[in-house]
């Protein structure tokens, strides 16, 4: 007789809306409300919405990567530092020369993948707690970077700025790229063996290993994906700022904010449950908040307070939702 165990649980899941949709609706209400309240109706037009989408790109890409490591039961605190490294590396190698775009991009991706490999290796093979492992790697990256550069280094050529500023019709390339990456991420999680293994590894590492899954490789691969995403974010920032500086990642608080939006999106911090769309919806909520505060003309600090409150509220809401009638 399992009815007693099972029925309440299934009812719970049936009566609640999917998290991404919920967050999307919340963002929409906030945004439209603020626009109407302040009378800035132009924000509801195409250009306003495109601007909103554009705000999502930087944090969105790195958060997609963070989703993978968190699903695997790990975490990555080195992304902000890696973003700085990538941005500086890209603009330093390019030095305004269009011919150097391809080598620079390639170099950034190789370096990022290598950093991910190191992160994953230290976590999976040496068994170092991921918080500490990636914090250490991040400090090393930042140290190396600060030792070599102390201001904007080099510049990116006009052609490369197209990444951040170019559009198809009115939709920026970068927004489309974020969407494409999210779709690829979702497909990876949903429809590939790797995705299934990732959920299993994050859900129960011992169980997955005893079932024959090479959990070490999965963890490393998740870290490589995360770092590649951080590298892409660095490239995007270099393109947007027209040059790279050793503080761009840290100033964006990409490490903590990427973790925050992943968690807001419903992914369990302990791993094994969640997904890309929730993360994207979390990013949308943060971008909406930015836009709303801009419309209201409120300074940046209350915005920070709001963000903090939202992270706490979201996690509390999940905790309460998961506490059903059957303990």
């Amino acid at each position: 007789m399992t009815l007693a165990d099972t029925l309440p649980a299934s009812r719970r899941t049936r009566r609640s809306l999917p998290v991404p949709l919920l967050l999307f609706l919340a963002s929409a209400v906030l945004y439209v409300g603020a626009a109407l309240y302040t009378g800035q109706l132009n924000q509801l037009g195409a250009s306003g919405l495109v601007g909103l989408a554009q705000r999502m790109v930087g944090l969105g890409i790195v958060a997609l990567g963070q989703t993978f490591v968190i699903l695997a039961g790990s975490i990555d605190l080195s992304v902000a530092n890696l973003i700085s490294v990538s941005a500086v590396l890209a603009s330093f190698v390019m030095q305004g020369d269009p011919a150097m775009i391809a080598p620079a991009v390639l170099l950034v991706l190789v370096v990022s993948a290598a950093v991910g490999f190191v992160n994953g290796g230290v976590v999976a093979k040496l068994g170092v707690n991921p918080l500490i492992a990636t914090l250490g790697v991040g400090l090393i990256l930042q140290g190396l970077l600060s030792a070599s550069f102390n201001n904007f280094a080099g510049s990116v050529p006009e052609a490369f700025q197209g990444l951040a500023y170019g559009t198809i019709g009115i939709i920026p390339w970068s927004v489309l790229a974020l969407l494409a990456l999210a779709i690829i991420g979702a497909l990876l999680l949903r429809s590939t063996r790797f995705g299934a293994h990732l959920y299993a590894t994050g859900g129960n590492m011992d169980g997955a290993r005893l079932a024959g899954i090479r959990t070490d490789r999965i963890t490393i691969l998740a870290h490589v994906i995360c770092s590649l995403m951080a590298g892409l974010t660095g490239l995007y920032l270099a393109s947007r700022l027209r040059s790279g500086a050793p503080w761009v990642g840290r100033d964006g608080v990409y490490d903590l904010e990427s973790i925050a939006v992943v968690v807001i999106g419903g992914t369990l911090l302990s791993g094994g449950r969640g997904g890309v769309w929730g993360t994207l919806a979390g990013v949308l909520l943060f971008a909406t908040l930015d836009a709303v505060f801009n419309m209201l003309g409120v300074p940046a600090f209350p915005k920070q307070v709001m963000r903090g409150a939202i992270v706490i509220l979201a996690v509390a809401a999940y905790a309460i939702r998961n506490k059903g009638p059957v303990a």
């Binding site: 429809s191 063996r193 299934a196 299993a200 997955a208 024959g212």
Partner: peptide
């Protein structure tokens, strides 16, 4: 499906 997936081909299709 855990064990089956541990040895499955890469794409679920």
């Amino acid at each position: 499906l855990l064990v089956r997936r541990a040895f499955a081909s890469p794409v679920r299709g």
